[in-house]
Nucleic acid binder design. Structure first.
Lengths: 377, 377
DNA sequence: GGCTTTTTATTTGAATGCGAAAAAACCCCA
DNA sequence: TGGGGTTTTTTCGCATTCAAATAAAAAGCC
């Protein structure tokens, strides 16, 4: 046994992330993934096994040579909470130390809810998760709607919760939970969820499309989420729309391509028509629709996506939110329409795909935040 | 005197960059800028002074305490070449080790020039620079038009040089020049020039607007240039335009807002009118123009910039190319128009400014590439 | 001038991380 | 059964880097 020097917590945290993600399964692969020497990697692993964060689970014989001693994260070393909310509901997930989703909790918020009540409910959700999770809570990730100051840990502004201004979330939650609390805008958190749990796995460049009550996007370039100078990148919903409209009026992409607006257009009802009780079900019923409305909606999405693709040269667009109920066919129609409208995009790998993560993508993304921020020790 | 251990070349290169940029002026400030300990910083500086890359130039007394021993780069330790070209001309600059522009060379290319001839001319330009520069050539940066594979060192495609496809520039030039050769798209190189020599100095988020024969942009987020999945980010020029146009026809932003198109619109002549011999002078003559054409052009620019700002939340847009001849007033009009068209942008710090770098911004950007890539030893 | 205060630079011993070589663990093949 | 080949892991000595203490250089103040 080697002697046991102290090592940098950051390095150990990075090592755990590599093992948990499956990118590294042995000391040698971990050494390559981290870009550090095999000898140092061995020390790290010793340390992490001694602390019960990693396990050695048997051998894995390659084509030849000494078999690698498989490294896995110890699932019961602790757990991470991921919480996402908006003005209607809170979704929370509990994720074990191996990054597997174990428990979900959902709470419907009363209408006209205020910030204080949201925070109380978040704490209650985490407490309920704790009942079923193994080991200690290690950190909490929070997917926050609206503008978020990630560094300061403050929710800056969200239109649909009346007093949601300058809410010091990290301070309020951290003091109660006694673990690190990490914030991110909820759509940008989803981008992280795709990296950990979904289609963004190997990708370093992609865009999340989030048509819900509005229309926002989250952009990932070289593995990094684009924040913008005031944490407000991705506000495509405020583009004038239709693009031919004179400016200065209130026609925006929000109004044309949000999830409710899309349902209205596909269902052929006017702006006053009441939305279905369950928008997702309403949209699912339209998945086989056809005709000029379908084509027009797809053409609009294609126009936006094509323009974004020209700016960012992104490749993959991942569709999130209720509209995923329209299925693969919707995404395929959009891709086709974009290539028809802008033929020069044909060789640029433009692709629109529906997310496979389902309804709690935001909470999973928040849990990803928590996992990425955690450090051993 | 301390003993003289070998140190990492990368660290030494980073230290030189900090001193050259003026962000670090003494051992202590350098230590903070690099995020390493004062003791190690002292070793680095010893090393670099011994190798004649840095100088100690006197003392600088602060408000109190021991005065800092001012560090400067040694101007004659060597020089960097920056070369930018398009189908018409090559511009090359020689920059001394302190980052000061010393010599410029311009060569007009014959029409229908081919790749081989361009490369020969580039080598000739560097040779002419060498006649006036002090010390050895250390590295060469190249601002390449069209698509560029930065990692592979290959110019992929450029429409206006007939056989410009898969040109192995780093291989071709490096084998002759015997120094590192670094590529970047010419507009993205300009983004670096702004960081070193211009308005991007303290900024970590900004956009370069490059209306020339077409219309491209270069985006910087958190100090990093956005490349895109296929090195093709920033192709805004291929947006359909006017936005109200039906798609599928050839109306693009290239045609509406390129430098020649802008001149035609402002001068009130039709698409067939001959361009002035010197487009810059022609544009300068219009700098005091007024009336509906002026407003319409500004409104178009404002529309594009506003939409980009919503996507990227960028803050500062730096205007490059011939249109800078339209002056501050043009940029001011655009900013005003954007805020009128999209009032919600008012508090987001949106600002359009003309570059102060002048005509050889591209070559200066290429020189920045060279400086950033160089390592001592 | 001598004293304290403040900031910068250097020395020193300790430790973290690396490279190279050795050891280990498996395969294949005779 | 044992040797050669291959890949993984560990050992070991060394070097780069750090933290802490120390030295240095000035201003301010009495």
């Amino acid at each position: 046994m080697r002697k046991n020097p102290t090592v940098q917590r950051e390095s150990l945290g990075a090592a755990v992330l590599q093992v948990r993600s499956g990118r590294a399964t042995s000391r040698t692969t971990l050494s390559r993934a981290l870009g550090i020497s095999p000898s140092t990697t061995g020390l790290y692993v010793d340390h992490l096994i001694a602390a019960n964060f990693l396990n050695e689970s048997g051998l894995n014989q390659g084509a030849m040579g000494r078999p690698r001693r498989t490294l896995t994260t110890h699932p019961e070393a602790g757990w991470f909470a991921g919480v996402e909310f908006n003005a209607q509901r809170i979704q929370a997930v509990g994720v074990d130390f191996s990054g597997r989703l174990k428990t979900t909790v959902e709470v419907i918020l009363p209408s006209e809810v205020l910030a204080g009540q949201v925070i109380k409910s978040i704490l209650a959700c985490v407490a309920r998760l704790a009942e079923t999770m193994q080991g200690p809570l290690l950190s909490v990730g929070l997917g926050v709607p609206g503008l978020v100051d990630v560094q300061a840990g403050v929710g800056l502004y969200f239109a649909f919760i009346p007093d949601w201004q300058q809410v010091p979330l990290v301070e309020l939650l951290g003091s109660k939970l006694k673990v690190p609390v990490i914030l991110q805008n909820n759509l940008r958190a989803i981008a992280l969820a795709e990296r950990w749990f979904g289609l963004g796995h190997g990708l370093s460049v992609y865009v999340i499309l989030g048509p819900r009550s509005g229309f926002g996007i989250a952009m990932v370039q070289e593995g990094r989420v684009i924040e913008g100078a005031q944490h407000a990148a991705g506000e495509v919903g405020r583009w004038p729309w239709p693009l031919s409209e004179g400016v200065g009026n209130s026609h925006t992409l929000h109004h044309a391509l949000s999830a409710p607006a899309t349902w209205r257009r596909l269902a052929g009802v006017d702006g006053q028509a009441k939305l279905p009780e369950d928008l997702r079900a309403g949209l699912a019923a339209l998945a086989d629709a056809a005709g000029p409305e379908w084509d027009a909606v797809c053409a609009d999405y294609a126009r936006v996506i094509g323009m974004l693709h020209l700016v960012l040269n992104t490749g993959v667009f991942i569709l999130h939110g209720p509209l995923t109920m329209l299925g693969e066919r919707f995404c395929h129609s959009i891709t086709e329409s974009a290539l028809t409208q802008m033929p020069s995009l044909r060789d640029t790998g433009l692709k629109v795909v529906p997310s496979t993560l389902g309804d709690n993508a935001g909470a999973l993304g928040a849990a990803s935040l928590a996992m990425e921020a955690w450090l051993p020790g």
